[in-house]
Design a protein around this nucleic acid. Structure first.
Lengths: 216, 216
DNA sequence: CATTAGTTTTGAACGTGTTCAAATCTGACG
DNA sequence: CGTCAGATTTGAACACGTTCAAAACTAATG
C-alpha cells in the first residue's frame, strides 16, 4: 500500500533474486533471504506467500517491462516471422540472467490448479497480455476466419513450450533452443501462409474443430 | 536381492499406493507409509530413495505389465491409427486408478536432470521400450527414409504430451483428452501418409533437418 | 499527550522429507 | 556352537518451508 511497504517488499525481492543467482533456488533458504534483507524469517512471508512467489514476482516484473517496449518493437516490421521472433526473443533476453532459476517455476509449470502456473486463473491477466502480443503480430497477415480466433492462443502456447525447452537446454549458449526456434518458426509461418490455400481447406477445418472441441 | 527383501519392498509399496489413493500424495506422509507397512520411518528409505520413487515404482510396474500384452495387441491390427491408439490407450487404462497421483510425477516431469523424469538417463530403458512400441506400430506403413529414423521418438514425445494433458484434465471422464487424442491422431496419421507425396518433399525435408539439428 | 486501530515485525514452533549412527537380525563359516 | 560380516531396522535428529500468537511500531483521533 504505502511506499514504505513497497520498499520493504522490493528489498526482500532483490535480496532473494541476488541469492538465487549466486547460490541457486534450492540452496537458498527463506532464512537466508530474510537475513540478507535484514529482517526476521516471518517478515518475508508477510510480503510473499511462498518462496515460489518470489520467482513469480520476477515474472510479474518482466511482464511490466515488456509493456514498455514490446508493442512498438512488434510494429517495427511488417514481416510475420520477424514479428513473432521479436516477441519470443524478448522472453529469452529478459530471463537470460535467471534461466536456471526458472526451473523452480517449471516444477509448477504444468499444473493449472497451482496459482503460479501460466495456465492458472490467477495468472490470466498476464496470459491474456501475452496472447495479445501475438494477436497484434498477426495484424496485416491473411488468416482464415475459422482459425483466426484461436491462432494467437496457439502461438502463445507454442511460446510457453519454447520457454520450457530453453529452461532445460544445457547446450552452450542454448544453441539447441536457437535452432528449435529458427526451424519451428519457419514452419509455422509457412503453414499459416499455406492455410489460406483452398487445397488445405479440409485439413484446416479439421484443426479448427479439434481446437474448439478440446477447449470445450 | 533376496525374496524376503522383495516382499518387504512390495509391502511398503502397496501400503503407500493404497494411502496415496485414499488420501492423496501430498496428504500422505512417509511416517504414514512406514506405519501402514508396520516398520520404522527410516526403513522405507532403505528401499526407496524418496517419496517420489514410490510413484516411480508404480510406473516401473506398469512398464513391465505392458510388456506382457502390448506387442501382441499392436500386431492385432494393420491399421496405423488403430495401432497407435492401442499404445496410447494402454497408458490411460493402466493409470486410470492413479491419475491424480501422477501429478506428483508431473511436477518432476520436464526436468531431464531429475532421475525420475521421462527424459532422464536413468529412465532410458523404459523410454526406449516405449519408443520401440511405436517403431513396431509403424512396421508396414510407408514412411520416407529421412523421417523414419526419428518418427518413433516423435510419436513417443507426443504420447508423453498426451499424458501430461490427461493428468490435469478435470473434465468428466477426461473427455477433453479423449477428443484431443481422436483429433490429433487423425491428423498425425494423415500427415504421415501425405509425407510420401512428392509435393510435400521440401516441407518434409525441413522438418527432418530441424529434428536432426535440435537433437544435436 | 493518551488511546486506539491498524500495520508490520518477531522468532519460536510445527510438520514433513530425509539422514544417519547405532542396534538388531541373519546366515555363512570355522 | 561361536563369531563375524553384511543386511536390515530403528528412531532420534536435522533442515527447511511455513504458520502464528504476541510484541513493536505507526499514525490518526479525541
Amino acid at each position: 500500500m504505502t511506499t514504505k511497504a513497497e520498499e520493504t517488499r522490493e528489498r526482500i525481492l532483490n535480496a532473494a533474486l541476488q541469492l538465487f543467482r549466486e547460490k541457486g533456488f534450492d540452496e537458498t533458504t527463506m532464512r537466508d533471504v530474510a537475513a540478507a534483507a535484514e529482517m526476521a524469517t516471518g517478515a518475508a512471508y508477510y510480503y510473499f506467500r511462498s518462496k515460489e512467489e518470489l520467482v513469480m514476482a520476477l515474472y510479474v516484473r518482466s511482464t511490466e517491462e515488456k509493456r514498455t517496449f514490446l508493442p512498438a518493437a512488434v510494429e517495427r516490421s511488417k514481416d510475420l516471422k520477424k514479428r513473432l521472433r521479436v516477441i519470443i526473443d524478448a522472453n529469452f533476453e529478459q530471463f537470460a540472467d535467471h534461466r536456471r532459476l526458472f526451473r523452480a517455476l517449471a516444477r509448477i509449470g504444468m499444473d493449472p490448479s497451482h496459482a503460479l502456473s501460466p495456465f492458472a486463473k490467477e495468472t490470466a491477466p498476464m496470459r491474456d497480455e501475452g496472447i495479445d502480443y501475438f494477436r497484434t503480430a498477426l495484424d496485416g497477415t491473411k488468416v482464415p476466419k475459422d482459425i483466426a480466433e484461436f491462432l494467437p492462443r496457439l502461438l502463445w502456447l507454442y511460446q510457453v513450450g519454447l520457454i520450457f525447452f530453453w529452461v532445460y537446454d544445457e547446450s552452450p549458449s542454448q544453441r539447441r533452443t536457437e535452432r528449435l526456434v529458427d526451424g519451428t518458426l519457419e514452419i509455422i509461418v509457412r503453414l499459416i501462409q499455406l492455410s489460406s490455400l483452398p487445397l488445405i481447406g479440409p485439413l484446416r477445418k479439421r484443426v479448427a474443430s479439434l481446437v474448439r472441441d478440446v477447449s470445450e
